[in-house]
Computed example of a mutant assay.
Amino acid sequence: MSGFDSNPFADPVDVNPFQDPSVTEVTAAAADRVEEFNPFSENTTLSIQTAATIPAPTPPSQPAVLPTSQEPSPQGAVAAAQAELHRQQEELERKAAELDRKEQELQRRGTSAGRENNWPPLPKIFPIKPCFYQDFAEEIPLDYQRVCKLMYYLWMLHCVTLFLNLLACLAYFTTDPMYGVDFGLAILWFILFTPASFLCWYRPVYKAFKSDSSFSFFFFFFVFFFQVAVYIIQSVGIPKWGNSGWIASISMIGSNLAVAVVMMVVAGFFTVCAVLSVILLKMVHSKYRRTGASFQKAQHEFSQGVLSNGTFQNTAASVVTSAAQGACEGSPFCGPPSFLTLSPPAQAVALSADLHI
């Protein structure tokens, strides 16, 4: 009943939860530690240093894509570029020096129209002047100079062989007067074939290499093929043909050994000429294939060169005019041809067009 006796309206007992002994003990201990803490003491600094946190090790990172090749360093690229520029500069300087040298040489010798001929190299006091101009270093490209010089040496060997053939046929004639035909033909071959070979196959190949002329190449091949055949016939030495070849020299062994030996030497020269001519023919043909020449180009060069020649135009016009007048003479229905009123060059062009049709 004691519970019911209490006054509910009376002031309750003031209860402080923080006055609990356990709470007050913990609070007092914490306050003492805070008061004792001195951040400037040596022990506190040492404890802070020892209590420093150690960062956790990070795993090594790897690139997402492995490099396939190592790129050159910038210094190496710069050095390579400088070396390339230096090489190009040296090449340009060399070409400029070569151009200057050629320009000075041209100025010294004059233009091509006023250039003095230098072949054959005759003395100044000689009444006959040189007829051709020849300079391998100036007129022939560097790739063709060797072959062109070899052709020139072959021509000189050809002339020497013909002269030796003349002497051998002379000795052949002294042993027996019946061989006077060979001596006479040997003189004719020397006088005829020496300049003819120069004009018919050496100069064409020189002009072909000089101006890359397809027509000159084809003309050289046509003539030089027959020259090779002539060399073979001369080396064989058919009697009464004016050649001191193997057959004629062997037939003289029983009659006169000294003359036979001389004739055998000449036969050897003819054989060497034949072999060298075949080799050089193949060399010229290989060079010709690199020049881009063709038969169509040769036809075009021939037509342009012939039709533009004034002498040919005048001759063709006069021939056609005479033929037309002779055909129409005495015919009342045949008037003068219309092309007779044209100039000679126009007549030649009209004639060539008619022939082409």
Rank of each mutant, 00 (worst) to 15 (best):
G268N: 05
C169I: 03
T311P: 01
K297M: 09
C159R: 04
V181G: 10
A316G: 01
F209M: 15
F221P: 01
A79P: 04
K297C: 02
I357K: 14
C131F: 08
R115P: 02
P336F: 07
W155I: 00
K297L: 11
S69E: 12
S41N: 10
L166V: 10
T194P: 02
L281D: 08
N243R: 06
D14H: 12
G76R: 13
A208Q: 02
R108S: 14
E84N: 08
V205L: 13
T315N: 11
A79E: 15
P60D: 04
L92G: 04
F126V: 06
L46E: 14
T174V: 09
E98D: 13
G110V: 08
G242Y: 00
T44L: 07
E105M: 11
F220Q: 04
V265M: 15
P72C: 01
E138K: 00
Y206K: 02
K149I: 14
M283P: 00
F225I: 05
I233A: 14
F193M: 14
Q107C: 08
L142V: 13
D135Q: 02
I247P: 01
A196G: 15
P120K: 02
L167A: 07
I191S: 14
T194Q: 07
F40W: 09
S331P: 00
V349L: 14
I125S: 15
L164R: 13
K240L: 13
R33Y: 02
A30V: 12
Y144H: 11
M1E: 14
A323C: 05
I54V: 15
E36P: 02
G268Q: 05
S41W: 03
